[in-house]
Structure formats: C-alpha cells, structure tokens
Design a protein around this nucleic acid. Sequence first.
DNA 1: CACAGGCGTGTAAACCTTTTCCCGTTCTGC
DNA 2: GCAGAACGGGAAAAGGTTTACACGCCTGTG
Lengths: 346, 346
Amino acid sequence: MRQHRSDRHAATSDRAGRATIHDVARLAEVSTATVSRVLSGGKPVTAQVADRVRAAAQEVGYRPNPAAQTLLRGSSRTIGVVAPDLGNPYFAEILKGISAEAAADGYHTLVAGTDEDPEREYRSAIELARWVDGLLLCAPRMSAPRLKEVAAAGRKLVLINRVLRHPSVGAVVVDYHHGVRLLCEHLGSLGHKRIVYLEGPPNAWSDQQRQRGFRTAEAAGQTIIRVPCGSSLRDGYGAVDEALTHRPTALIAFNDHVAVGVLSRLRELGITVPDDISVAGVDDAPMSAHIDPGLTTYAVSTVELGRRAWQHFNPTAPTNTIHLTGELVVRASTARAARRRRTSQA
Amino acid sequence: MRQHRSDRHAATSDRAGRATIHDVARLAEVSTATVSRVLSGGKPVTAQVADRVRAAAQEVGYRPNPAAQTLLRGSSRTIGVVAPDLGNPYFAEILKGISAEAAADGYHTLVAGTDEDPEREYRSAIELARWVDGLLLCAPRMSAPRLKEVAAAGRKLVLINRVLRHPSVGAVVVDYHHGVRLLCEHLGSLGHKRIVYLEGPPNAWSDQQRQRGFRTAEAAGQTIIRVPCGSSLRDGYGAVDEALTHRPTALIAFNDHVAVGVLSRLRELGITVPDDISVAGVDDAPMSAHIDPGLTTYAVSTVELGRRAWQHFNPTAPTNTIHLTGELVVRASTARAARRRRTSQA
DNA sequence: CACAGGCGTGTAAACCTTTTCCCGTTCTGC
DNA sequence: GCAGAACGGGAAAAGGTTTACACGCCTGTG
C-alpha cells in the first residue's frame, strides 16, 4: 500500500458506469430540470411525467452525484469528528451518539483519530474543515491560537471538554471540577487522607479542570499526590507501581479507562481493592458497572453529551458553552480506609 | 433539532467568505490553470511565478474545494465504514485501525452505525456508496441479494466477517469455526461436558461460523446447549439466568463484550468464576486481559484485520477472501470442571 | 539566419446538479 | 369571446477545479 496514487485510472473507468441526470432525462424524454424537480421535489409536475421520470430513474439506477450537489448548494451535509483515540470506549460512545443524531437529520459523519498527537489533531481538523459543514473536536489538545485557526478555516466549530474564548465556537463541557470535588469528599468521608491522582495527558484542558478540583480539596485539608500517567488503559497499568511508592490509601484515575488498567495491575500485585486501597475513575464508561470490583466514578451521560453537541450545529443555536454536571456513582471499588496500611506489596 | 432544513441560508452566507482559485489567480496575476499547477504540482512552473502564487494563496487563505475536486476526478478519496455498533470496543478497534491506515494514504473515513438493524444497515450502505471510493461493511446482517445490490451501487466493496459469492467483493474473515473448536477442546480437556453457547444476533454470518464449530464439537461427543442472546454487554447480562437453567459447567459467549456482561451477572448471583462455572468469549477485546477474572478467549488481531481490509482497497489487489486465524488465549475464567455441580443459585 | 522543438502560460471544456428565468399552453372569469 | 392568470416544462447559468489543447517565445542547431 502507500501507493494509492495510481487509482485515478481505476476510479475513472469505474465511474463511467454511473448514470447521470442526463441519462434519465434522455430516457424519459424530458429536460434535466424536470428530472430534478420530480426527484428533489421542487415545483409541481404532471403525474404522468413524474411517473415516466421515476421509471427511467429506476431503470438506469440513477442516484444523484453528491459532489455535484455539494458543489452547488455549498453544503455537504456532513460533520467531522476528531478524537484523540477512537479505541477509547468513552470517545467511541460519543462518536456513536453524535453520528446517530446526525444520521437522523440526514447528515453524515467523517472521523479522524489523532493518536493523542496535537500536531496530527491540528492537521486532521484543518483538513476535515474543508469538507464538512461543522467540526466536532473531542478534548482537543492543540493550542488556543491553532484552535482559533481551525475555527476560522471551517464552517462551524464545536468543542467537547475544552473551552475557548472565541465568538462562534460552541462547546459542551463536563464539570470535572465538580466531579473531582465529589470524589474527594466521598473518599474523605471514608477516612482517606493520602490520595494519589493519576494525571491525564499533559496540557489537556480536562486534566486542568480536574486539577482545579484537587486544589479545592487540598484547600479543605486533603493530601493529593500527583503522578503523571495518561489517558489509556496501558498508561494506568504502567503508573501503578510509581503511585504505590507514595503509599496512598486511595487512588483517583484520570478516567475509567485508566482505572481499569490500574485495577488490573493491582490485582497482579496481590493488592485487594477496596480492602487495601480504594480506586475511583471519571466518566462512567459502559464497562465500569460490569467489572469486578464495580468502579466508583463520576458519571455524565455520553448520550446527553452527544445530543447537546449536535444541538450546537443547528444554525439558530447560540454559540455558547454548555456545562454538563454529572453525579457520583459509588460502587465497590471504594471503601473505608484501612485502619493500618499494610506493606504496599501485601 | 430535526429541522436542519433551514440551514441552507446560513450555509450559503458562510460559504461566501471562502476564497476560490480565481481569487488566487487574480491576486497573483496568473491564470487559474497556473495556480492549480503550482499547488497540485503538475507541469513545471517558473520559480518566480510559483512563489507569487504561493504567496497569494497564503494571503487569501486558499484551500481547494473538495467537492469540485471530487466532481472532476470522480473520486472523493474517502472510504465508508458501516458497523452494527460503534460503541462495541471490537468495532471501535477496527474503525480505529482502518481509519488510521486510510489517513496515512490521504483518505478520509465516513462512518455509520446501524444499531444492529439490517434495514438501517442496508440504507446506510447504499447512501454511503454514493459518496465513497470504497465501502467497508463490518459483520453485515443484510441478505445476500441486498449485499449484491450494495456491491453494484458502489465502487469497491469489502466485507469483514462475512463472505459473499460474488466477483469484485473482497472480504477479510476470522476463522470462527477454528476458534470455537479450540475453545471446545480446551474446555473438554478440563472435563466440561455440558456447555452453553450464548448465541449471537439471528442470521449473523459470524454466528453461523461459530455454530459450525459447535457442530464439530458435538460430533466429537460434547453437549452444546444453545441459548439465544445477542452481541452486547446487556444481552450477555440478560441471558445468564436462562442459561443457568440448563445447569452447564461452562459457558461460551458470542463475543467478549457479551462475556463481560455474563461475568457481571454471575457475580451478582454469587456464582464464582471459574470455580463454579467456566466462561469464555471470542475476539479478545482490549479489556479482556484486564478484568477479573481474565477472560479466556479466541484472539485475532484487530490491527491485522484493519490492515488487511485496507489492502483490499488497493485497486491492484485481487478481490478475494482472506481468512485470518487466531489463537486460544487461556486466562483465569476457565478451569477444571467442578467434581459435583452446586445448585445453580449456590 | 531560419526553423524546429521545448518550455511556460492561458483558454476553455468537462465534471453533474439545482434553480432561475422564461415561454407556451390551457383554463378562468368577466 | 377575450384578457389575464396559472401552471407545466425547457434552456441555461452557476458552482470550483483540473487538464487537454493551443499559443507564443526562446534557444539550439543545421
């Protein structure tokens, strides 16, 4: 592969087979204008002519060329979605939701994964902006100036879990500050004093929001130890050992995906959750209720997130920032802090 | 929402701002042909003129209109991916892989989820076929005639986990027959005699392949009890109670997603895996290694799947069916059958 | 010195659809 | 019976880009 340059020829010869509106017009013995009117429903047309046109269209298997339609109407009826990791169930849920909403309105969805790379994110966004009527960026990591550049390049820009001081850019954000506060209060009420936070990707806006929540918790007297981590399952798995050197009684992961990796590594080490250590996540991924132990987390509906994001694409919608607040979901992964901490290798 | 019809006006007024090749040509005082040659790199151009054109393009922020390019060259440099459930980690992985491969070759990816509905699947496929250079259908449920219709409507069709006797349709399929045989042999060697199979969606090709494997196992003397289920986590969760009425010692789920739901329900019922009952899945989803107990499953690399599928889009590639064979991954969810079965509600 | 060839650039057609404007016919109302 | 309206349908332009063809100039060679 990597030499797809050569398919120009194949494409052209293939295309030769597709019927155009002219073929239909010729067969039905009418003008192309009439064909368009019959099929796209403009002005009224005699029933007899309409039938003839429809029969002709059926016979040659006519389907309007979307490129021509797009060129003419200046809208492709397509939105673009850019996400750091399409394999992450959280983004997969969002993509599922938004594409379903879009499809219900006759819109298509173009996707791009960026592998968490801000540079690729920028390039993908700029590239997609050429094609689509609206662009949805999930948790974008790129700098604010570049984000503004993207906003200028495209039609309509909507952000998920990132805000940008800019007119005409909509956003839907989860109130992670609130979420983290709830988690800290919950753990505090269970007697946890030393809590490790496994940080998300550097410069991620949504990580900064969480950090705000932790500062609030610190101001209230709790001890938060920050350990660099990331956003994937592997990141969580890999960060556990360092986290344990700080001898925490509880552990908050950047998100549920990370938390699953954490639980996996803890199990390997023979450390029992929640008896030896409590673990909490953020996002309430679909599987979080079904793993053992069930994961305590901050839940916000991805369905709602997708719905709200799609609303932003309505041209009459105001371009503001919608704050979504979730709720604490307590499951089996958090419990009262052990009276005496056992050695970390149990 | 649902009244996006009105955005024609907004779109038109927005589009007014975008610079065309004519604007660049006027500013650089050359013809549009020269601009195209400079930017798309065709025939040679004087360095001085090229610089002038590039400067002009930069100044007005020119980006070629993809609809016009598509219309002309008859290729949109886009592929379409249709999957039953974008939220299912298995399909999310495949989407991630194929879109990354496509992006590396400068192609875009259009997606559609079908919510497991064959009717929507057909409509989505036909609709996407108008737009794209190639269509990738993941585990399609539609009938063979309709599949052929889709093949005729589009440029290039590639199937994942489904075969179709038809020239010019490529396919990449996992050898589930082999996988199920391995799982049955594995369980047999552990002394399991009564195995429940939680069936996938009705009419799913990949379920039929699994059934073939089970018939082989039955021919070898094993007892397989079939229980209707589905392909989602909830389906697995919901099918457990009925499955238990058959008093099996082991349980094979349609896929890992289902198996996770099964484990969850078993835990609720106080039934221990693998002591009371063994559980196995199929697909080796990313999380399967990280849950407790680790899931015994049949693993085939989704990366490989995506890579092979993309290869099929190369116009010089033969349109054949590629069989991918995986391997048994034994984890903690399967063990020797209990000597005496406890009551199912233990 | 003249002519051929090559290189750089412009012109215009083609890609396919929608929609505006216009014309011709038929029907209505006075 | 005639004027005007209403309605069905056709011709043509617009939308932005690429590319085949043509043209002019410069250079190198006979």
